[in-house]
Write a protein that binds this DNA or RNA. Structure first.
Lengths: 351, 351
DNA sequence: ACGACGACGTGTTACGTATAACTTCTGGCG
DNA sequence: CGCCAGAAGTTATACGTAACACGTCGTCGT
C-alpha cells in the first residue's frame, strides 16, 4: 500500500505583506524622535523622558503592532542572546530533556537556544556553524566528536561542556554527572544481592561517559572473590541490544546472572533477550539500566536504573554559560545521581 | 541522600577575546575593497572579479578566520533564513522526530530551525515570540493552543500547520496525516479478528488529531452488529494510562476484549493494566497503539500500532514554508499512514 | 584615429537599532 | 537680574553587510 502522498493547491495564498513598522514609524506617529522611542521601549527612560510621553510612545507602539527588529538590535549590541546546544540526537530522551532544561533557564534571561544535532557517534559533524544559521553568543556541547570540538574552538566562543572529560577539553566550564558514583552504586547493589558473574552491556560508541562506566565497574569488582565481569558492546538500539545480550547469555562458560546496561534502551533489549531464552527477569537474570527514561517504567518488569538529572544538566550548563557571558566566574558542577531500585533486580538463582 | 551538587571554581577562564575580523579587515589585508570581498564570498563575482583576485580574497578570508556577521547580513537582507517550530514538548518522541525532519530539510537550504516548546495542552503559551529570541522568516506549528495561534497571526509571518484542522486555521499551508484512514485500519483489523467490545483509551487533551480519531472510530463501528465502543480519557503518561485502563477493564458490564489507544505510551500503560488484573495480552485483551515510537518494540508483546511518518511531517512542513518564502505555491499534503501488526493483537478469547 | 565596449573593480548607501553628546526650556536661588 | 541645574528631548553616529551605480582601463572594430 505504498500510496503516494496526496497533494493539492490551495487558494491564492501569498498575500502581499505590508512592511513591518520600525521604531522610526512609531516615533513619527507619536510625534517624537526615534531615540525617544528606543529609550522608552528599552526601559531606560527614568529621568530622561516624562511619564506622559513614555505612555504615549508605548501606546503608539502597541497600536502599530511594533516589534523590534532583532537583527538590527543584535548588530548594534554585538550580541544575540542566543546559545547553541550541540547534542548527538534529539530523539534520545536524555538530550531532549537536557535541551528542555537549558531552554527554560535561557528563557528566564531572555535567551534563546538553537540546536545542532551532531550526527551520532563519529559522523561528519565537521562544522556546527555551517548549519547553525544564527549568530551566537556561546556554545554548550554534549558528547561531541572531536572535529566538531575543534571547529568550536576556532570560533573563540565561550564553551560549556556537558557530561564529558573535564581534562583538557578547552571548555570554559563543565557540568558533569557523577557517573563513577552511579556505577559504583549499581555494582554495590548487585554484589550485595549476591551476584558474581556480571556482564556489562556497553555502548559501542566510546565517549567519556561510557569509558568511565567501564573503568569504574572494573575497579569496583576488583578484590571481590569470585567476581567476574565481561563486556559486550552494542549499538544504542533495542534490537541490537537484544542480539548482543542473547549472545552474552548463550555464549560459552557459565551464564551471567546480572546484566549491567549503559542505557535503559539497552536494558529493554536485554530483557527481551532473557525472555527469548526462556528465562525470567529478575528471577534468573537481573538487569539494570541507566538514565531513567520514560521507557524504564513502561517495560515489565520496571527497570532498576540510575536516575540522571538530565534537565538539571541543561540548566546548570546554561547558567554557567550565562555567568561567563556576564564576566562572572562559572561554576564547574558535578551533579549527584541516584540509584532507583525497581523490579528488574533480585538475588541470583539459588541464593 | 540529598547530597548537594559539588561545585568548585576553575582557573582564570575568561580570556580577553580579540575582536572578530570583518569583511573590511579582509578587504584591507587583501588589498581590495570591501565590496569586492562581499561579492566574492557571496559567490556573485562571475564576470565581475578576476579569478586571481577571487582566489586571493578567499585565501585571505580563510587565513584571518573570517566568518560573516549574521546579524549584519540579516539586517541588510531583511530575512534571517530561520524558522520557528512550535511544538508541545520535545520529550515526546513524535515531536523530536518532526523537528529532526524539519531541520534536515532546512539545513539543505541553509535554513535554521529554532524551537518554541509551547507548554503542553492549554498552558499559557501566550506569546511564542517573547521567548523566541530570534528574528524569524516563518513559523511551523503543531498542536498549538489557540492563544498562541492568535499571537502568530498577529505577526503576519507565513504559517504552516502540522497535523491539525485544515479548516479556518489561517495557515498558508497544511501538512496532515491521514488520521481517519489510520483509525479505520485499526478498527477494521480488530473487527476482522472478531472483536466487538472495544474501549478507546483516548488522550485527555482535545486537539484536532484526537477528535478525528474518536469520530472515525464511532463511524467505523456503526452498522456492525453487536459492536460496542466506550471512550476513556487519560493523560499521555504510562501510569495515568495504566490506571485509566484498569478502571476500564474492571468496571461494570462485560469486559472489553480490545483497547485502542491514542498513543503507544497509553498502550504501554494499558498492557501493564491488563497484566495487573491477571490477564494476558493478546490472549485475553488486544491492545493497539499509535505513533510507532521506539517504545512500541521495546515492550512485550511488541505493539500493533499505526506508524506515523513523523520525520516526513517535518520535512513537508519545512518544504511548504520554503515554497511560501520563495513566492511559490505551497503544497497541502496528506501523508499516508500504515498499520503495523505485531504481537499485541489477536482474536478475542473463545473465537 | 576614435568611439564603444567588456573586464575588473570601487565608492556609496541603506538596513533598524542603541546610545553618547548635545540642545532647549523652565524654575529657583543668590 | 543673571546664571545654573536639572528635566525632557533631539541629533548624530556606528554596528557589518549587500548591492546599485559608477569609474577606469585596455582592446577591438571600422
Amino acid at each position: 500500500m505504498a500510496e503516494p502522498p496526496r497533494t493539492d493547491r490551495p487558494g491564492p495564498g501569498t498575500a502581499t505583506r505590508p512592511p513591518r513598522p520600525t521604531s522610526r514609524d512609531v516615533a513619527q506617529a507619536a510625534g517624537v524622535s526615534q531615540a525617544t522611542v528606543s529609550l522608552v521601549l528599552g526601559d531606560k527612560w527614568r529621568g530622561r523622558v516624562s511619564e506622559r510621553t513614555a505612555g504615549l510612545v508605548r501606546n503608539t507602539a502597541r497600536e502599530l503592532g511594533y516589534r523590534p527588529n532583532l537583527a538590527a538590535r543584535n548588530l548594534r549590541l554585538g550580541r544575540t542572546r542566543t546559545a547553541l546546544l550541540v547534542v548527538p540526537a534529539l530523539t534520545h530522551e536524555f538530550f531532549a530533556r537536557v535541551y528542555t532544561g537549558a531552554a527554560s533557564v535561557a528563557a528566564e534571561h531572555s535567551f534563546g537556544v538553537v540546536l545542532y544535532p551532531s550526527p551520532e557517534g563519529v559522523g561528519p559533524a565537521k562544522d556546527p556553524f555551517a548549519s547553525a544559521r544564527a549568530a551566537l553568543d556561546g556554545v554548550i556541547a554534549s558528547s561531541i566528536a572531536s572535529e566538531a570540538l575543534a571547529a568550536i574552538r576556532g570560533t573563540d566562543l565561550p564553551l560549556v561542556m556537558l557530561d564529558s572529560d573535564p581534562a583538557g577539553s578547552g571548555a570554559a566550564a563543565h557540568v558533569n554527572l557523577d557517573i563513577a558514583d552511579a556505577m559504583r552504586q549499581v555494582t554495590d547493589h548487585l554484589l550485595g544481592l549476591g551476584h558474581r558473574r556480571i556482564t556489562h552491556l556497553a555502548s559501542a560508541v566510546t565517549s567519556w561517559t561510557f569509558t568511565v562506566r567501564a573503568d569504574t565497574l572494573a575497579e569496583a569488582v576488583r578484590g571481590v572473590p569470585g567476581a567476574l565481569v565481561r563486556t559486550v558492546p552494542s549499538a544504542l538500539e533495542v534490537h541490537a541490544a537484544r542480539e548482543a545480550a542473547e549472545r552474552a547469555l548463550s555464549g560459552p562458560g557459565p551464564r551471567p546472572t546480572a546484566l549491567i546496561c549503559d542505557s535503559d534502551v539497552l536494558a529493554a533489549g536485554a530483557v527481551k533477550a532473557v525472555r527469548k531464552l526462556g528465562l525470567r527477569v529478575p528471577d534468573d537474570v537481573s538487569v539494570t539500566g541507566f538514565d531513567d527514561l520514560a521507557l524504564a517504567t513502561a517495560v515489565e518488569p520496571e527497570l532498576t536504573t540510575v536516575r540522571l538529572p538530565a534537565e538539571q544538566v541543561g540548566e546548570h550548563g546554561m547558567s554557567a554559560l550565562l555567568a561567563i557571558l556576564d564576566g562572572r566566574e562559572p561554576e564547574n558542577t558535578v551533579l549527584p545521581v541516584s540509584l532507583v531500585i525497581r523490579g528488574s533486580t533480585a538475588p541470583p538463582p539459588g541464593a
